[in-house]
Amino acid sequence: MDDLLLLTRIAGRPAAFRAVDVRSIIELGTITPVPRAPDFVAGITALRSRALTVIDARRILGARGGRDSADDRSPVVDIAGHSYALLVDKVADVVAGVGALSPVGPTLGPRWSACAQGMIETAAGPAIVMDVPALITGPQKAAA
């Protein structure tokens, strides 16, 4: 796999996004909470002149408590015409994947395996490659 990967940490674990999936990385400003929204939706925020939905990827993947780093950067992804900003622990680096994507076993746990495409080796160690559409709608799918 020769794709470039955006390496992040989510819920304390390394998680990678294909660079082609990520539209941009933004500094998150104020997040306006949405009443009655599912708990993985942190709220909406303004990016330039449009509203983005902020998805708390940490919560989806089972993190508890607040964010442990002061990183305000957030990857923005586009799914089905909508833009989402993902809340992660931190945005680490852009690295090249080494070798092919290998399947993940059941030991990943239900939360992670629901939104993982597979495992990849990188120069910074192994990471889970995230399935972005599954991440955005993940918890609902899992519930259904």
């Binding site: 949405v34 009655r36 939706v41 939905t53 909508h82 955005i136 609902q140």
Partner: peptide, 9 residues
Amino acid sequence: PLPPALEEI
């Protein structure tokens, strides 16, 4: 338009 997660509310 709203994303599906918010529309479902």
